[in-house]
Simulated scan of single mutants.
Amino acid sequence: MSMVRGTCWNCQSKIGDRETICKTCSKIQPFAEGINYFECMGLERRLQLDLRKLERLFYELSRQFHPDFHHGKDETEKNISLENSALLNKAYRTLQDPFSRVEYLVFLEEGNKDSITAKIPQEFLEEIFELQETLEEFRSTENLKVREKLEGKLQEAQRMLESRLLDMEKRLFDLFGRWDGMIDSKDWLTGSRDRKLSIHQMKEILSYRTYYTNMIQDIQHLLQGNKERRQIRH
């Protein structure tokens, strides 16, 4: 529901950009058009969030908007409560998880939903190609001894990928602190170069993380399938 902000849709009293209840007539107001998830929750664009505070904010706002509390309201207010509640739920789900949170921040800063794609770290390119060959060989062979040997290699590769994934996530969380530090010092308002560099670094790690996560899932799927085949034989 698109409504002009600045005045209450019901009594035409002035309302602030982030006010969700009219102080004059107590009617629910729609979120401002184009509001982002951080603004929806009344937060700055921080990456290190207090999850208990986030949960408390979510439940406080949910009590205002949840349709169950507006049975006796007119259709306009019911529709506003439904739309506000839906947006609030999306905001909470996104900001609750650190990885979806930083992906959303990258989207806000770059304006491109598809900017994060799986990417192979160049320093591990040769190892990854060897692993891909092992995966392909494992898929294509029916020789039990060969599969057993390859299974050991894949288990070792999975442990290696999981270790690197943890290292990447640690680097990413370190960048969270750097980003929030810029907000605290207000450098993010004027230091566009540092701001863009931080976004670029986080985006790159997310791309690597996506690739590694996909590889780990492929290995797990193949190993699980091989385990089930052995159980059927016995």
Rank of each mutant, 00 (worst) to 15 (best):
T7L: 01
W9V: 00
N10K: 09
C11N: 02
S13M: 01
I21P: 12
T24P: 05
S26Y: 07
Q29Y: 04
A32T: 15
C40I: 07
M41L: 14
M41R: 13
E44I: 11
R46L: 05
R46H: 08
D50S: 04
R52V: 02
K53A: 13
E55M: 04
R63L: 03
F65S: 06
P67A: 01
D68V: 03
D68I: 03
H71W: 11
H71Q: 14
S81M: 07
L82T: 14
A86N: 09
L87T: 08
N89A: 10
N89E: 08
S100W: 04
R101Q: 09
V102T: 12
V102C: 12
Y104R: 02
L105P: 05
V106E: 10
E109L: 10
E110P: 04
K113E: 14
I120N: 12
F124G: 03
F124Y: 12
E127P: 05
E130N: 14
E133W: 08
T134Y: 03
E142D: 00
E142P: 01
K149V: 02
E151P: 05
Q155N: 14
E156L: 06
L161W: 09
L165T: 11
K170F: 08
F173Y: 15
K186L: 07
D187Y: 10
G191E: 12
D194E: 11
Q201P: 09
Y211M: 05
Q217W: 00
Q220K: 11
Q220E: 13
L222N: 10
N226R: 09
K227P: 07
R229K: 15
I232A: 05
